[in-house]
């Protein structure tokens, strides 16, 4: 009996959920919005900058594009934005949805710039199997290489970091790899600070040179932990180097407890407070004791007079 009730209840719930899921996916995209076209080309640069923006703003709910690892939200789970079912719609439609949001999906109208939104769409389109014409426009074709090597050269005086990316061809020559994006990061307490800027792509010699921010603190000696890696693991797997270098601004951490302050505990109280308090206590008790002492002396004094 109990079981039947349970079954009926769960069937009912299931029904309610399916109904609400269907409702949740109902987007009213006006025809004018649908016609919008992505003004940016599907270049490797645009795709990779779109991926960065995606990872910061979309990934926490939608998961990795194409992986189906979105947050299991109720009643409507976020879509997998790399799936064909999602990419079947036009650029304009996706753009509209990013702008307006619905339900748990926030609006990004003001929080992302137009360019950023289109970059995300460009990135998502790179998963589209049907859009042959918007295939990645590869600006440079690097030869097939193995043994990819990333070499760091740090100039502490000028605070410049130079990274060189190269690989060994089938013929056994070491060649520079061009047009590959690198991420240059500095370790901080709870994560890595990206200092690579907008244009950290290797040039024809395989080099990326960036200026280390002059005012970025290191430890007492200016040491910082640097991490340089090929941004997209899809090219050569994970290629990275880390290095401790004294390129940061030497910074002495301030210890607020070094100073005596009003807010300090007893041991850290300002000297003048300790002195005036102790002085106050001593003088008040002193007066009391003086009076008591003289009271005791009174009979003696009277006797002496007699």
């Amino acid at each position: 009996m109990k079981n039947t009730i349970k079954i009926i209840a769960s069937l009912f719930l299931l029904f309610v959920f399916t109904a609400s899921v269907a409702k949740g996916q109902d987007w009213n995209v006006p025809a004018s919005a649908k016609n919008k076209q992505n003004p940016y080309e599907a270049s490797t640069k645009n795709i990779s900058s779109g991926k960065k923006i995606y990872n910061i703003n979309c990934k926490s709910c939608h998961g990795d594009a194409g992986m189906g690892n979105m947050l299991p939200l109720q009643p409507v789970a976020p879509s997998d934005l790399g799936s064909q079912a999602f990419l079947i719609q036009g650029d304009g439609e996706i753009y509209y949805k990013i702008n307006k949001g619905q339900g748990a999906m926030p609006t990004f109208e003001k929080t992302l710039s137009d360019e950023d939104k289109w970059m995300v769409i460009t990135y998502l389109r790179s998963f589209d199997k049907n859009k042959k014409e918007s295939k990645q426009v590869a600006e440079v074709v690097n030869p097939e290489v193995s043994d990819v090597n990333l070499v760091l050269d740090i100039n502490n005086e000028e605070k410049k970091i130079n990274a060189n990316l190269s690989g060994v061809t089938e013929k056994g020559d070491r060649v520079a790899l061009q047009g590959i994006e690198l991420s240059i990061k500095v370790k901080r307490s709870f994560g890595y600070l990206d200092i690579s800027g907008d244009d950290a792509y290797t040039n024809e010699k395989g080099n990326v040179t960036i200026q280390f921010p002059a005012d970025l603190p290191g430890d007492r000696e200016g040491h910082v932990n640097l991490l340089v890696k090929v941004t997209d693991d899809a090219y050569y797997g994970e290629v990275s180097v880390d290095r401790i270098s004294s390129i940061g601004l030497p910074t002495d951490p301030v210890n607020p407890l070094d100073e005596r302050a009003m807010w300090g505990t007893r041991a850290n109280a300002p000297i003048w407070i300790i002195l005036s308090y102790v002085g106050g206590v001593i003088s008040i008790w002193g007066v009391i004791f003086l009076v008591l002492f003289q009271l005791i002396q009174l009979p003696k004094m009277a006797k002496n007079k007699e």
Binding site: R188, S189, F190, G191, P217, V254
Partner: peptide
């Protein structure tokens, strides 16, 4: 959230 000494 972070460490002001590291400015991050």
């Amino acid at each position: 959230f972070g460490d002001q000494n590291e400015d991050a």
